[in-house]
């Protein structure tokens, strides 16, 4: 489903060249729930940016559902992101001046979905993540856990192939973090979406059926729970 082959990413800083990812290959199947761990500087963020189509590798190939996503010119990348990827961030990144349903509906609006339809689907998704009574609330009126639920609704509303979460529980207290993790487990099962969770928290990582650890610019560990 998601296929990274011999991905290399290097940055040129002055005369020195820093290689962040070195011939990294990775295959993930639809419906998998997979955690990615790794110390700082291990290339986690770079890998996430490449998977999220925010950055391009120096070399290698990348396919989602058989589609060569690197072949698209840069100005088509946003349309690919919109269609294929749903992002969840550590600090939620809701737009402060839009209410919950407008935040959740944003990917559909950028897709040109008519407002009534976008609203219907956003509200349905907010209901699914447990915010049926918070549709019209502004982000400032929501708790951290509720904000992350809105962010998850926003990530899923466009029915992406990949749900990409960067430290989604990092800003939450443990109890709420577990609720959010439970929600990831649920939506992964229910929507069959491939979910990738980048985390520092071993407890969160341990709940994922597949656990990756990055090191030295490659996949250092790939554990599948039976």
């Amino acid at each position: 489903m998601l296929e990274l082959t011999e991905i290399t990413k290097s940055f040129r800083t002055g005369p020195a060249e820093t290689v962040v990812l070195r011939d990294l290959s990775l295959r993930l199947e639809a419906g998998e729930l997979c955690s990615i761990m790794g110390g700082s500087g291990s290339g986690k963020s770079t890998l996430m940016n490449i998977i999220g189509l925010l950055d391009r590798p120096s070399s290698g190939s990348y396919r989602i559902a058989g589609e060569d996503v690197l072949a698209a010119p840069p100005d088509k990348q946003s349309a690919l992101r919109n269609r294929l990827i749903g992002f969840v961030f550590q600090s939620f990144f809701l737009l402060p001046r839009l209410n919950a349903w407008r935040n959740a509906a944003l990917p559909l609006m950028y897709r040109g979905t008519p407002e009534a339809e976008a609203r219907r689907r956003a509200c349905a998704m907010l209901e699914r993540v447990g915010l049926a009574d918070r549709m019209e609330h502004m982000p400032a009126q929501l708790s951290g856990g509720q904000k992350q639920r809105v962010a998850i609704a926003r990530a899923l509303v466009g029915q992406p192939k990949v749900l990409l979460a960067d430290e989604p529980t990092g800003a939450l207290d443990p109890k709420v973090a577990q609720e959010i993790m439970d929600l990831f487990l649920e939506v992964n099962r229910e929507f069959g979406v491939l979910a990738l969770i980048i985390t520092h928290d071993p407890d969160i990582a341990a709940q994922c059926p597949r656990q990756l650890r990055l090191g030295g610019g490659r996949i250092a560990e790939d554990i599948r729970r039976a």
């Binding site: 100005d75 349309a79 749903g86 990144f93 737009l95 990917p107 950028y110």
Partner: peptide, 16 residues
Amino acid sequence: RREIGVRLAIGATRWN
């Protein structure tokens, strides 16, 4: 800037 980053990530085009 961060808002612009979020919008770009969820599929806003440069023109948007």
